[in-house]
């Protein structure tokens, strides 16, 4: 690990301004993804700003009837919250499908969203990777691509965003609140937080340098049956090959997003209009323009079948 200096932030604005005042600085909260990457010298910050002392650890009702989740609420606490379990079951289910008990105790709401979009070639520092070393090329595209993206990818990068929680947040139309180094705040719809790789896969979100997430808000509950179905190589503690997060209403309408197939949670509102017509119709619209590889073409059929299982479960 490269050496770094360390400070504890005592206010969000101070944290954000410290991040631009110090060159090559990073925020650290749970640290489960950042420290993993620092040990491999894939992340090499020269300064860490510990934000754990900020008071962003509560889940509070909003005037609109939703919930405001503090950026530092741990994944376990969020999944176990009675209001989340009752009104946003999809979010509890998605959180509990991810990582291990130990990691969920440490990982935060904001950190989960901001974990790196990644693939095994990103982790292997002997291989070229446009995300790790921009312009060096992509070893994955000509490599073993079973886990990789089938849609929204580019000639620069075919990695996937591994968050289960983000799939639920996308279906729930969450929004992210931030503070910028100049002290101003803004609200970013979850749909606009993660970017597709394009020619610049090293930039994974639309956050500006030093911009700090302070909370994530959920709109008021929409009812319906909440289902998160994750298909993976192990029964537990593995990334999704394909995951489907859905809210299905009694009349068969609803919302759906898919994980494990793209650089960001994959939700196409036009595809949702097909939900009453079944999985094949939805999958066809959802995967329009897909560019799978030989290794991961199975994901197209797997999305449709997982979706069919979810719709069948919703019918009861």
């Amino acid at each position: 690990m490269k050496s770094f200096t360390y400070e504890k932030a005592d206010s969000p604005a101070a944290a954000a301004s410290a991040a631009v005042r110090t060159s090559n600085a990073k925020f650290i909260a749970g640290g489960t993804n950042l420290l993993d990457l620092m040990k491999l010298e894939i992340e090499t910050p020269s300064h860490l700003i510990d934000v754990n002392g900020l008071a962003f650890d509560k889940i509070e009702p909003t005037p609109e009837g939703g919930l405001r989740i503090g950026a530092l609420v741990r994944n376990t606490a969020l999944a176990a919250d009675q209001r989340i379990r009752r009104d946003y079951g999809l979010l509890s289910r998605a959180l509990l499908a991810g990582a291990s008990g130990q990691l969920r105790n440490k990982a935060t709401t904001a950190g989960n969203l901001l974990q790196r979009t990644r693939c095994p070639y990103f982790y292997d520092t002997n291989q070229p990777c446009n995300k790790r070393a921009p312009g060096s090329g992509c070893a994955a595209i000509s490599g073993v691509t079973r886990q990789h993206a089938v849609i929204g990818s580019s000639d620069s990068c075919i990695a996937t965003h591994p968050s289960d929680m983000a799939i639920a947040m996308r279906v729930l139309d969450a929004a992210v609140q931030t503070v910028r180094p100049d002290g101003t705040t803004r609200d970013i719809p979850i749909a606009d937080l993660h970017r597709l790789p394009g020619d610049t896969p090293q930039f994974e979100t639309t956050l500006a340098p030093g911009e700090l997430i302070t909370s994530v808000t959920l709109p008021k509950p929409v009812g319906g049956t909440h289902i998160y179905r994750k298909v993976r190589d192990r029964a537990s503690y593995a990334f999704a090959l394909v995951s489907v997060g859905a809210i299905v209403q009694r009349d068969g309408t609803g919302r759906v997003a898919v994980g494990g197939i793209a650089h960001k949670p994959w939700r196409i509102e036009a595809a949702e209009a097909e939900m009453p017509r079944g999985a094949k119709a939805v999958a066809t619209r959802l995967l329009d323009g897909a560019k799978p590889t030989r290794d991961n073409a199975f994901k197209l059929a797997l999305v449709e079948r997982t979706l069919a299982a979810v719709l069948a479960e919703a019918k009861g």
Binding site: G31, T32, L48, D50, S100, G101, Q102, L103, N105, K106
Partner: peptide
């Protein structure tokens, strides 16, 4: 593994189990 994958380093902090390899002592 020293990367949070195996759980051999599990300890409890504030009564909650975590991977002690993926957190800095100064925190």
């Amino acid at each position: 593994c020293d990367h949070g994958q195996c759980g051999a380093c599990t300890v409890m902090v504030g009564g909650k189990r975590i991977n002690s390899c993926l957190t800095l002592a100064v925190m």
